[in-house]
Write a protein that binds this DNA or RNA. Structure first.
Length: 424
RNA sequence: GGUGAGGUGGGUGAGUGGCUUAAACCACCGGUUUGCUAAACCGACGUACUGUAACAGGUACCGCGGGUUCGAAUCCCGCCCUCACCGCCA
């Protein structure tokens, strides 16, 4: 959520940014500023009224103590007339604040200056292309969902029987591969200085609101209504919320966290060939990295995270490219996002496996995550996060790219985790 | 799930309608003193909004939300959470 003061001071830049996103109703910016004017004048009037009421009440108390009952009663009559007006102003003020909140929640983050304008994924910029050879598959190579049944490593039909479509069941070496990847990612992340977190998988509404899942992405999450809890769509939600409503000492920054969790997404979107197999599922495993930074360091941190994720993909020997997302394709809360896509050789398509973003103060404002600067003033910290990495599609690419007539080869870096070098 | 006790500033904790501007102590910060450190003493010490050129000042906030009252941390109603014991349970 943007700060009103920021909108007021940077109106032109805000409108320019919204244009990059093809934001459909930029007129809310003027509405917000007008509403803010109204809020200030209403608050001024209300504060004055309350100040007067407080003053008179104190006087009444004083008179009572002195035993001057008649004078006190006279003052009571005098002040009780202003109660209706106070109530009216309070209601007006609350209505303005509610409307303000609603409008502010509808405004996405302002893109970083490097973000290209664009409507959708076709306008994304290839930030780093893959310039090395692509894997060459032998005749008879198969997509990963066929390899799954051939080698009995995961079973979508069993998942459907037990739960429903989009809930894969991994077994045998497939299950071991999942566990190995999780361990591998966590080890790399903790070696790079990220503290490992194992958070709750269900979160309350306050938590979901702070990271921006509520109210706008309500349909994305599984909701346990009876307990008013939500299954997390990503570890970002519980992990970032560790610092909700916190004022940090500057010595605590930067903070680097990593966490493995299953992720649950309802994804009421499309079905068909491009969502077959593990390409898009309702439950998948992901290891996330989350950072909290001083504003002046956050873009350097973003670069580090991009380099970090690149390093992991290098170790897995997967062809990948990095996209700089255009304004229209970027998430609502992000100021700059790099997507990582790996090449899935049998499907002959790129699969998104990581999204690394700087949210600047967009999340921290809603979360009230602050630090104290050198003048002891509170400032909003910057938040960043990225996948390092999302499992299901990594597995899809590994299976397809590494298949040979003899079986599926495990990348060298993973073998000490799996304990085997071939799925056959 | 049952019963009971609780929820007050960074921490401990007082506060049953106005004498509270939330006491006191501890911690942190600044200062005095001092070879150094400690101690002692003095001062400052919450968040947000508003306001000011900057100070000052104003308003709200004592788990959350309503209500009573001229006035609520305090009284009333609803909810949430914590602790203890019991029950159930991996």
């Amino acid at each position: 959520m943007l700060q009103v003061a920021y909108i007021r001071e940077n109106k032109d830049a805000v409108l320019e940014g919204l244009k990059k996103r093809f934001f459909p109703n930029p007129e809310v910016i003027d509405e917000i500023i007008a509403l803010d004017d109204e809020r200030k004048s209403t608050q001024g009037a209300l504060d004055d009224l309350r100040a007067e009421s407080n003053r008179v009440s104190k006087e009444i108390g004083q008179l009572f103590r002195e035993g001057k009952r008649a004078e006190a009663d006279a003052l009571k009559d005098q002040i009780s007339g202003s109660k209706d007006e106070t109530k009216r102003l309070e209601d007006a003020f609350n209505a303005i604040e509610a409307k303000m909140e609603e409008l502010l929640l509808s405004v996405p983050n302002i893109p970083h200056s490097s973000v290209p304008a664009g409507k959708n994924e076709a306008d994304n910029e290839v930030f780093q292309a893959w310039d090395k050879p692509m894997p060459q598959l032998f005749d008879g190579a198969q997509p990963h969902w066929e390899l799954a049944s051939k080698y009995n490593i995961f079973d979508l039909e069993l998942g459907t029987k037990i739960t429903g479509a989009g809930f894969p069941l991994y077994r045998g070496k497939g299950a071991k591969l999942q566990r190995s990847l999780i361990q591998f990612f966590l080890d790399i992340n903790t070696d790079a200085g990220y503290e490992e977190i194992m958070p709750p998988l269900l979160v309350n509404a306050d938590t979901a609101r702070a990271t921006g899942q509520l109210p706008d992405k309500e349909g994305q999450m599984y909701h346990c209504e009876r307990d008013e809890l939500y299954l997390i769509p990503t570890a970002e939600v519980p992990v970032t919320n560790i610092y909700r409503d916190v004022i940090l000492d500057p010595s605590e920054l930067p903070i680097k966290l990593t966490g493995y969790t299953p992720c649950f997404r309802r994804e009421a979107g499309s079905y068909g060939a491009h969502v077959r197999g593990l390409n898009r599922v309702h439950q998948f495993d992901k290891v996330e990295i989350v950072r909290f930074e001083f504003p002046e360091n956050s873009y350097k941190a973003l670069e580090e995270m991009v380099a970090h994720v690149s390093g992991i993909l290098d170790k897995l020997e997967l062809p990948y490219r990095i996209l700089r997302l255009c304004g229209g394709d970027m998430g609502f809360t992000s100021a700059l996002t790099f997507d990582f896509e790996v090449w899935s050789a049998a499907q002959e398509r790129w699969l998104e496996v990581s999204s690394v973003s700087n949210f600047e103060t967009f999340q921290s404002h809603r979360m009230k995550l602050r630090y104290r600067d050198e003048n002891k003033k509170t400032q909003l910290a910057h938040t960043l996060n990225g996948s390092a990495l999302a499992l299901a599609r990594i597995v899809a690419a590994l299976l397809e790219n590494n298949q040979t007539p003899e079986g599926i080869k495990i990348p060298a870096a993973l073998q000490r985790y799996t304990g085997f070098d071939l799925i056959s």
